[in-house]
Design a protein around this nucleic acid. Sequence first.
DNA 1: TCGCATCAGATCTAGCTTGA
DNA 2: TCAAGCTAGATCTGATGCGA
Length: 295
Amino acid sequence: MNHTSLEIFSVVAEELSVVKAAQRLGRVQSNITTRIQQLEEELDAELFIRDSKRLKLSPQGKLFLSYTKKLLSLGEEARQSLHPHTPNGDLALGSMECAAASRLTKPLAEFSQTCPEVRLLFSTQPTGQLIERVQQSDLDCALVALPVDDAGEPLCPDDLRYQPLYDEQLLLVLPTTMSHIRQLSDIDEGKLAAFAVGCTYRQLAMQMLQNMGASGRRIQVQEVSSYHAMLACVAAGTYMCMLPESVLQLLQIPAGLTLLHAGHAVTQLIWRKDYRSPALDHLRQLLASDANVSA
DNA sequence: TCGCATCAGATCTAGCTTGA
DNA sequence: TCAAGCTAGATCTGATGCGA
């Protein structure tokens, strides 16, 4: 078992295809098949279930993948640690859609200029999924909105650290059919356009609607994959949505929609407690200088 | 036709020996 | 100490087979 074998296994596990993994790694298909077979033999474990033409990760494969990601991440961290003053290598950054749209443009442009040797691997997802991916070493860090306890303190998992960055004012956007509503307590029905389960703003909106007049009814949720789609649902007159004011400023708001202030949420940068790299340190500094809340 | 497995042969690499 | 040569094993490629 060496670094190459782990890299190959990791890519095959992601693609669930020997052919696609071979294309991605610039190798031939037979080579990938052989390396996976050798790894399985060495580990005395079946990492994949061969289901006719398709590959599926076996339970042992899933378990081994979690260790593989940690080992590859640790290897990258070790490599970078040898050059503490010149950030280099890969930095896998995740972000909520809203932070990517409204907050990251400037810091990331600056990051790419000041750290040209770092390959930034960027992806967007809801908070819940981002937290899991950071814990599994699939991401090095991520911008999320951690849920808070009754005292307003972020509920951060023990194995993660966080740095507060942006205080986001949240707005509930109502369709023209609800133009008679002047305050949150007037809302007596709940149809919400929101991102997938795991999105903190969705969770906040659901809690708010349940605490209001809509508590007696089941809240219908239309899942969308972008803020444009979310606003389109509201413009169609059926759904309401919750989004940060900073995002709304970037969008063209259809006429006649009602905007209600719905509290605030803090966007944090999270990373694993045991992870450190010059690239992450540099990104933290850049984000801190751009933040509107102090750490 | 597609995707994975298998095989033979080519190529690469690490480790060892030898001699200057 | 270091470069050159040799060798075994690891790894790679391309062709082919098999099953869905």
